[in-house]
Design a binder for these strands. Structure first.
Lengths: 240, 240
DNA sequence: GGATCGGCATTTGTATGACAATTGACGACG
DNA sequence: CGTCGTCAATTGTCATACAAATGCCGATCC
């Protein structure tokens, strides 16, 4: 019932309940079982269970009241940009709808982040971006390495903006990016167009061309979205 | 030591510790006192204290290890878009630097949100936006009502996008918006230009003019940023 | 009959004490 | 000098008890 992967028991319980809520097994406004029942079901003490529920409470997923029990809140109250919430959602399986939302968000702030990274990023930050791009190029034969490098490339851009909120946003969607990169690279080994656009984004940032970096990132997002749409379509046909 | 404003004790402890961390009283990498010491200092049981710490842990503010104690994590690990974290930061006092970051974020999302609200929003959602604008206009004499209406106006735009992540973002920055609106309306009773721009954003959204709405919102943000800069400058001169 | 008020039962909130697990520090030993 | 084991400090988990809040329902009063 509880898959504790080495972490603390409390964290395992949090993840278990969080996944159930985010995946929709527990619907909003639905009362969770009472603490006593959940303790029995999960095989943990009330202390541990309550600490887990408190963590979910802190993320806005649930609200507890004496006598009424603990209930799942409406999704509009969730801290959707909580990294764990987002990770649980991704674990539950991404849907085309989710991808639409994700790319709308990315379209909002990634091009802008490129612009800021170009105009404000330090030499060292620019160097890191370039290094991650080089790693993408180098890892032609290893999909895992390529995905990881791609992820780090995008996160390095956020870091170079100097805006801690953009950095946090990047960390939050990390899991979502990882899955979508994996998914899109699953089939086609290395889309030439996207690789070129990564390079153009990288170059524009390093030469301080904010407008250009922004423009190339928009193109990259469009291309990526298209690739991903096909990949997801494929994967849904194969094993839904 | 603990200002419990009617909420649960655990929430009061969470807020107390959260404020100390976010405000910088407790620096990153600094070890918090041991659980026993904090219990004594705050006058609560270990159960309550631990539930509070777990909530902070869930927000990425702290990490706990046996023997090493509980330590504040580096800010890059914080879930900055957690509504409570953001609220604590605002309570601790906003700085010009914070406003810069906030407006960069707003610039990323709000114009785009206007565009989506215009092209995808339902009649009802558009009506709500219009109603909030009307309330802004009507509340010429009541600064508090005007601020509240302004806030709801912006949140209604996020809601009209239909993208739950944009909605969540709006909820997250709610506290920050509230304070900045209050601050900017503190001096000048009602900046004519900003009022007009609100109307233009509203009209453009309702007539489905995404591009226009986006453009007007950018202008509104620029104007608002300028007003706020002056107001903050004033307020910092008065009582820092 | 309907509304209002108060007691009751249920559920979460808090407190307390105990023990387990982890891990850094220090000393013993090869 | 390095390596390993022991120890102690701290968090992690468990069990139990009681307090507080609150929905439910019946009693009571108009």
């Amino acid at each position: 019932m509880l898959s504790r992967g080495g972490g603390r028991l409390c964290s395992a319980v949090t993840a278990e309940l969080g996944r159930r809520i985010v995946s929709g097994s527990l619907q909003p406004d639905e009362s969770l079982p009472t603490e006593a029942e959940m303790c029995a079901a999960l095989g943990v003490s009330r202390t541990t269970l309550r600490e887990a529920v408190k963590r979910l409470h802190g993320k806005g997923l649930v609200v507890a009241n004496p006598r009424r029990g603990t209930r799942v809140r409406a999704t509009r109250f969730w801290n959707q940009f909580d990294s764990e919430v987002l990770a649980w959602r991704v674990e539950a399986g991404i849907t085309p709808e989710f991808l639409d939302y994700l790319y709308e968000i990315r379209d909002c702030f990634e091009p802008r982040a490129c612009c800021l990274a170009a105009t404000r990023g330090s030499e060292a930050e620019h160097a890191r971006i370039r290094a991650h791009f080089a790693e993408i190029v180098a890892a032609t034969d290893d999909a895992g390495r390529r995905v990881a490098a791609d992820l780090e490339f995008h996160l390095a851009i956020f870091a170079a903006t100097g805006n801690p909120y953009l950095v946090s946003l990047g960390s939050a969607i990390r899991a979502a990016l990882h899955v979508s990169f994996s998914l899109s690279q699953q089939r086609s080994p290395i889309p030439h167009q996207e690789l070129r656009l990564h390079g153009q984004v990288c170059d524009a940032i390093i030469r301080g061309d904010g407008e250009g970096a922004q423009r190339y990132m928009r193109q990259l997002l469009d291309a990526s979205r298209a690739t991903l749409g096909l990949a997801l379509h494929e994967s849904l046909k194969v094993a839904p």
